[in-house]
């Protein structure tokens, strides 16, 4: 399942053109959400599944309250949220800081592409879980291997998105710059780079999701804090209500971060989808 995390950017972007669509459908979304909770309530009242496997919404709500007040495992969920967000953000930013320049270089210098691409193709299908033993042997059990795991899981999406952004520069834009006397350097800086930005942002939005999905794997490495740890730890203790609460928090945080990137995107590339 984890092997599928890294998908090509284009097919993984659920809203390639339709940002406006989401606004129009928020009502539908909340209705669906309410209906799902209602159905969940009915199913748990009817006891179709044992309560330990599917606790009622009330139990999950109680788990929430406990998580935010007394906490689980000796600290409140705020600590888990903080530490997990930090790991995801650092891993993700690392992937951006390395992945974007590397993608640009790969797209421009065939030799670098030929050197890096085999590695990229190789790590793409490897599930993040598989790196754990290696990372532990190389980097111990501190924060570094956790962040590196997220970084390695996220970076292919960023690199591939960047390369495809560069390659998708409309030839006319290049021809215009050439006939106006721009040098290759200037064309790269003033035409190719801004042309690639929209796809880089798409990659970043997909990437932040991937980073969160790598979190659970990362927090299998000797963690005693973090949302991934919380979900696993509660799962082992069969505290399904806590597991569900943890999953919901992860989902909300992942979504919030995607929205944050979208905000930056709308300010940075306002021409996106309008040209």
């Amino acid at each position: 399942m984890l092997a599928k995390l890294v998908r090509p950017v284009a097919e993984a972007d659920p809203y390639p053109h339709g940002r406006g669509l989401k606004h129009a459908s928020w009502l539908t979304t909340s209705l669906v959400l309410l209906a799902a909770i209602g159905l969940w309530e009915i199913v748990s009242i009817l006891q179709l599944f044992p309560p330990i496997a599917l606790p009622p919404p009330k139990a999950v709500w109680r788990a929430f309250v406990i998580l935010f007040t007394r906490g689980y495992g000796g600290h409140t969920i705020w600590t888990d949220i903080g530490i997990s967000s930090l790991r995801v953000v650092i891993g993700f930013l690392g992937a951006i800081i390395i992945g974007v320049p590397l993608g640009l270089l790969m797209a421009r210098v065939p030799l670098i592409f030929r050197i890096v691409d085999p590695f990229l193709q190789f790590i793409r299908p490897v599930p993040p879980l598989a790196y754990i033993p290696l990372l532990v042997v190389w980097f111990g059990i501190g924060e570094l291997p956790k962040i590196l795991l997220i970084l390695v899981g996220t970076i292919p999406v960023i690199i591939i998105g960047t390369i495809s952004g560069v390659k998708a520069t409309p030839p006319l834009r290049l021809a215009v710059a050439r006939t106006l006397g721009a040098s290759e350097r200037q064309i790269f800086r003033h035409v190719i780079l801004p042309s690639a930005l929209p796809e880089i942002f798409t990659a970043a939005r997909v990437g932040i999701g991937v980073a969160w999905t790598c979190l659970v794997a990362a927090e299998l490495i000797a963690a005693d804090q973090g949302l991934g740890w919380l979900v696993q730890y509660a799962g082992q203790a069969l505290q399904v209500a806590v597991v569900i609460a943890g999953i919901i928090v992860i989902g909300i945080l992942g979504y919030a971060m995607e929205l944050a990137i979208r905000l930056v995107e709308n300010r940075t590339v306002p021409w996106r989808g309008r040209q």
């Binding site: 834009r173 710059a177 006939t179 106006l180 006397g181 003033h190 930005l197």
Partner: peptide
């Protein structure tokens, strides 16, 4: 060259598009 399509740069204002060649 003036091409069949305008080929303007959407990240630049009208004024900066016109000044693009001069800047280069």
């Amino acid at each position: 060259v003036v091409f069949q399509k305008p080929g303007l740069y959407p990240w630049l204002s009208l004024r900066d598009n016109i000044a693009f060649g001069l800047r280069m």
